[in-house]
Amino acid sequence: MNSVLNWISANQQMIYIVILMIFIGIEVIGRVPSVLHTPLMSGANAIHGVVIIGAIIVMGKAESDNYLALVLGFLAVILGTLNVVGGFVVTDRMLEMFKKKKPPKSP
């Protein structure tokens, strides 16, 4: 019990962020029209590509004789980049197709 409380107080900043982000995440997309469900999903998919930062840290901290960390970290960097770059490019391609016909609707 004590250790749990300690953990919470040691990480209170992070826990605050988690709670606030949950509310922001819900609030921010609350009124999305169904037409945009797919691009929004794809955009969110690209955003969680921030894992790549973790991969970079793993890779950059790996000692040169720790082959497990080097190989897995390298793989993680590749996969994370795929997620980020691919995600944003696919989303942009989807939205590009909306754009052309959009002007008459927006003021």
């Binding site: 962020i17 982000m21 922001i24 995440g25 969680h48 921030v50 894992v51 930062i53």
Partner: peptide, 17 residues
Amino acid sequence: KVMLTGGILVGAAGTLL
């Protein structure tokens, strides 16, 4: 913090979506 915000943001928004 950026991994935390990005991740949780997508986690929450994705669940709602």
